[in-house]
């Protein structure tokens, strides 16, 4: 993901104290940051709060950013990721990363995710079907272990390259590739437990 000249210019103006540039920068990157937060936490309200928090943190740290050292997008993604890790630790979400094969104790007869996907019948309303499929994938993504999930999100949802992801996660590129592939495979196993395909 290359840094656009416009972004670089906006960052320079921001650092110089241009309020309009900051506003433009926020508008340009809000969607991206929000999506990272949303896919990682699985909650729109949490994502909204974290996005605001991330931008406030970015705003306060803007003076410390050096354009020569790296891309602005990578920098704000790293800051967002750190925020997500903090949030994850705060909320102890790792306890919820149970296998999707095990239904909740209160609802023993409830179908697992694979069965639910299999049960999805072709709907006259393709949009609704698509929404439902997205919801299920989104829920399954929350079950993937956090280390793998963040790598998958950055690569397959945010289209970042391995080098940038390695910078964000502060791990070698080989580790990044391995995490991405394992995350994808784990997601597929979660969703395709019964060999049902909903494509």
């Amino acid at each position: 993901m290359e840094e656009s000249p416009l972004t670089a210019s906006l960052v320079r103006r921001c650092i110089a104290g241009d309020t309009a540039a900051w506003e433009e920068l926020v508008r340009e990157h809000t969607r991206r940051i929000y999506n990272i937060c949303y896919r990682f936490t699985g909650s729109s309200s949490d994502a909204e709060d974290l996005t605001q928090e991330a931008f406030i943190k970015i705003y306060r740290s803007l003076n410390t950013f050096d354009l020569q050292k790296g891309a602005f997008t990578t920098w704000i993604t790293a800051m967002t990721r750190n925020l997500l890790v903090d949030h994850f630790r705060r909320t102890k979400q790792e306890r919820m990363t149970d296998s999707m094969d095990a239904p909740p104790a209160a609802d023993e007869d409830a179908p697992n995710v694979g069965e639910r996907i299999e049960d999805v019948k072709p709907s006259p309303d393709a949009v609704l079907a698509s929404k439902e499929k997205q919801r299920l994938v989104h829920e399954a993504l929350q079950k993937v272990s956090p280390d793998l999930r963040e790598a998958v999100i950055l690569r397959d949802i945010q289209d970042m390259d391995y080098r940038e992801i390695a910078q964000v996660l502060k791990v070698p590129e080989g580790t990044v590739k391995s995490r991405i592939n394992r995350g994808r495979a784990e997601l597929a196993r979660l969703l395709s437990r019964t060999k049902g395909q909903v494509m």
Partner: peptide
Amino acid sequence: ADTQAGLSWLEVLEPAEVPANLVHNILAGT
């Protein structure tokens, strides 16, 4: 096979819609 399937599942996901007031709230907060 699992990796390719997982990637195909992830391609289903569309970018989430940003809440209407989010940008405004961020700007107001900053």
